[in-house]
Design a protein around this nucleic acid. Structure first.
Length: 504
RNA sequence: GGCGAGGUAGCCAAGUGGUUAGGCAACGGUUUGCAAAACCGUCACACGCAAGUUCGAAUCUGGUCCUCGCCUCCA
C-alpha cells in the first residue's frame, strides 16, 4: 500500500498522513456561507477534498467526511435585507443551490453537513467551557476569546502576535477596542444589534461568532481530535488559527492532526472579486460548458497552486468563453468516446489469448494511487489517464475490421481502469451518449445550427454518396463544415458533431 | 513592514539531484471515395537571471529580477 503524504500547513512541509485510526479517517472541511450562488472558488476545495475522500475510500479506508454550512452570518443577514426576505429562507435557498451545483460537479455528498442553526446547544456549551477555563470573557453582551491565553497562538499561520499587533489597532472601531482585552481577541458570541436575528444565551441575546461553529460541530461529529481539516488558503488566518486556539484550550487535546489548504482560483491572473468585474457564478460556466469540464480543468492543476482561469471577454466585457473549460470538455469528449468505443466491442471480438496488457492500462490504477498518495497530485493522475486512454484506443483500433479482436485480459483490464477513473477521480461517471449529445446540442444551439437542417443535409449527402456523386457529397460536407458541423462516417452510418471551437 | 507561494518549450501544466509526465495549438504520416474520429511522428536535451556546491542541478545553497497571495469579510 502506498504511504500517503500530504502537505501539512502546521508543519509547513509534506508529511506522512497518519490518521489516529488508519481504518477510519475523520475529515472536516470548511463549507460555504450560504448567501449567494456558488462561484468557482467554492468548486475547487469541494473537488479537491472529494478526490481525497474518493481516493481514501478506494484504498479501503473508511472515511467520515464532514463539511459544515454557515447559515447564520453577517453576509446572509445583509443580503436577506437587500432581498427583503428572511435570512433563514435565503440561507436555505442558497444551500440548495450550492448542493445542486456541487452534485453537478460529481462531488459526493459529505456524510454530515452540519448547520450552525442546528447546533446552538453545542456552541453555547463550548463557549461556556472556554469562559469557565479562563480563556474567554463576556463584555457588554459579546463573548471574546482571549488570544494570549493560548500559548501556541500563531502556530498554524506561522506568525507571532507581536509582529501583527502594529497594523491591527487601526482597523478596529473604538468601541470594539474598548471591549477587547487584546486587539486580536475574537468574538465567540456576538451580542444582537437592533433588527438582527438573535438567539438566547447566558450572555444575552445574540449569535455565534464565525469560528466557534467549526470547533463545536467538528467535535460533535468527529471527536475532540480528528485527522484532517481542509479549506481554502485564506482560511489559515484567522479562521483556522482561531479554531485551533479555542478548541485546544477547551479540550487540552490536539485539535486536528493534519491541516490541508487549497490554493485560490484567479481570473486572468487577478484575484476574483466583484469590484474587478471578473466575478461569475458557477452556473454561468455551466451554461457554457459541461460542469464536469470544470471538474476536469481544476484537477489538471495541483491543489496548492493557484488556478489561473482565463476568461475571454468581448469588447463590451461580455463573457465569450472559458478556454480551459472548453479544452477540458474536449478531453471529456475523448474520454466518453473511448468509453463508447469500448462499450461497443461485441463478444465475438474478444478472444482468449495471452497478449500482454499494455503497461499504461495494467498499471494505471496503481499509478493513479501513487500520484494521489504524493500530496494528491491530480495533475499527474490526469497525465496517466491520457496515456491510458491512448492505449485503450489503440486496442480498440485493433478490433476494427473483419479480423480485428481484443484479448479477454485487455478487455477486462480496460473495464477496471474505466471504473477506477470514475471511482477515484469522479470523471466519466455520466452516461457517455447522454454527455456527448448534451454537448452537441448545446453547441448547436449556441451557434444557431438547427438539428432538422443537419439531418436533411445528412440525408442529401447519403443520397449523393449512394449515387457515387462524390462532388455533391463533398459540397454538403463543406456546407456543414462552414457552420462547424463535422460529419463522422462510420460502418454503422453517418453521425455528426460540432467542432470544439466555433467556425470562424 | 511581517509571513508565504511561484517563474518549466507557442500556450497550459507535472516533476524537485542523474532515467522523453501529460494536454492544447501547429505541421507531417497511417486510415478514409473525401473527411472526421483514433493512432504514430515532429516542434521538445525546456526549466527567470547570473554565481556556488557536485562526477552530474530545472531540482541543493546564497544572491538577484519579476509576478502573486495572506496579514481585513473572502473558497
Amino acid at each position: 500500500m502506498n504511504q500517503i503524504t500530504l502537505f501539512d500547513t502546521l508543519e509547513n512541509k509534506k508529511k506522512k498522513f497518519e490518521p489516529a485510526d488508519p481504518d477510519h479517517v475523520k475529515i472536516y472541511v470548511c463549507g460555504p456561507t450560504t448567501y449567494d450562488d456558488a462561484h468557482i472558488g467554492h468548486a475547487r476545495p469541494c473537488i479537491v477534498y472529494d478526490v481525497l475522500v474518493r481516493y481514501l475510500r478506494s484504498i479501503g479506508r473508511q472515511v467520515t467526511y464532514v463539511r459544515n454550512v454557515t447559515d447564520i452570518d453577517d453576509k446572509i443577514i445583509q443580503r436577506a435585507n437587500e432581498n427583503q426576505e428572511e435570512p433563514e429562507a435565503l440561507a436555505a435557498r442558497m444551500f440548495e443551490s450550492y448542493s445542486t451545483d456541487m452534485t453537478r460537479l460529481w462531488n459526493l455528498s459529505p456524510d454530515h453537513q452540519p448547520k450552525v442553526s442546528e447546533h446552538f446547544d453545542e456552541i453555547r456549551a463550548l463557549i461556556q467551557k472556554l469562559i469557565d477555563r479562563g480563556n474567554a470573557y463576556a463584555a457588554d453582551g459579546d463573548v471574546y476569546f482571549h488570544v494570549p491565553s493560548h500559548a501556541d497562538y500563531g502556530k498554524l499561520s506561522h506568525r507571532k502576535l507581536d509582529d501583527m499587533e502594529v497594523g491591527a489597532s487601526e482597523r478596529l472601531d473604538a468601541a470594539t477596542t474598548r471591549r477587547k482585552k487584546h486587539p486580536y481577541d475574537f468574538a465567540l458570541w456576538k451580542g444582537a444589534k437592533e433588527g438582527e436575528p438573535s438567539w438566547e444565551s447566558p450572555w444575552g441575546p445574540g449569535r455565534p461568532g464565525w469560528h466557534i461553529e467549526c470547533s463545536a460541530m467538528s467535535m460533535k461529529y468527529l471527536g475532540e481530535t480528528f485527522d484532517l481539516h481542509g479549506g481554502g488558503l485564506d482560511l489559515v488566518f484567522p479562521h483556522h488559527e482561531n479554531e485551533i486556539a479555542q478548541s485546544e484550550c477547551a479540550t487540552g487535546q490536539c485539535y486536528c492532526r493534519h491541516w490541508m489548504h487549497n490554493g485560490f482560483v484567479q481570473i486572468n491572473k487577478e484575484k476574483m472579486s466583484k469590484s474587478l468585474g471578473n466575478f461569475f457564478r458557477l452556473r454561468e460556466a455551466f451554461d457554457k460548458n459541461e460542469p464536469e469540464a470544470v471538474r476536469y480543468s481544476l484537477l489538471t492543476v495541483h491543489y496548492r497552486s493557484p488556478f489561473n482561469l482565463e476568461m475571454d471577454l468581448d469588447e463590451e466585457g461580455a463573457l465569450l468563453a472559458f478556454p480551459q473549460f472548453r479544452d477540458a470538455e474536449a478531453r471529456l469528449e475523448y474520454l466518453y468516446n473511448t468509453k463508447l468505443r469500448y462499450g461497443a466491442i461485441g463478444a465475438k471480438k474478444i478472444k482468449d489469448r495471452d497478449d500482454e496488457v499494455p503497461q499504461e492500462i495494467e498499471a494505471f490504477t496503481e499509478r493513479v494511487h501513487t500520484a494521489l498518495a504524493d500530496d494528491l497530485n491530480t495533475a499527474q493522475a490526469i497525465g496517466h489517464l491520457s496515456l491510458c486512454l491512448k492505449a485503450v484506443n489503440e486496442l480498440c483500433d485493433a478490433t476494427q475490421g473483419k479480423k480485428g479482436s481484443m484479448s479477454r485480459r485487455s478487455y477486462e483490464e480496460i473495464g477496471k481502469v474505466l471504473q477506477s477513473v470514475e471511482q477515484v477521480l469522479g470523471l466519466g461517471c455520466d452516461d457517455p451518449a447522454a454527455f456527448l449529445d448534451r454537448v452537441r446540442d448545446r453547441r448547436a444551439k449556441e451557434r444557431g445550427v438547427e438539428i432538422e437542417w443537419v439531418e436533411s443535409c445528412l440525408a442529401r449527402r447519403a443520397e449523393a454518396r449512394a449515387a457515387k456523386d462524390f462532388a455533391a457529397a463533398d459540397a454538403v460536407r463543406d456546407e456543414l463544415a462552414a457552420r462547424g458541423v463535422e460529419m463522422l462516417d462510420t460502418p454503422q452510418g453517418t453521425s455528426w458533431r460540432l467542432s470544439v471551437q466555433a467556425a470562424v
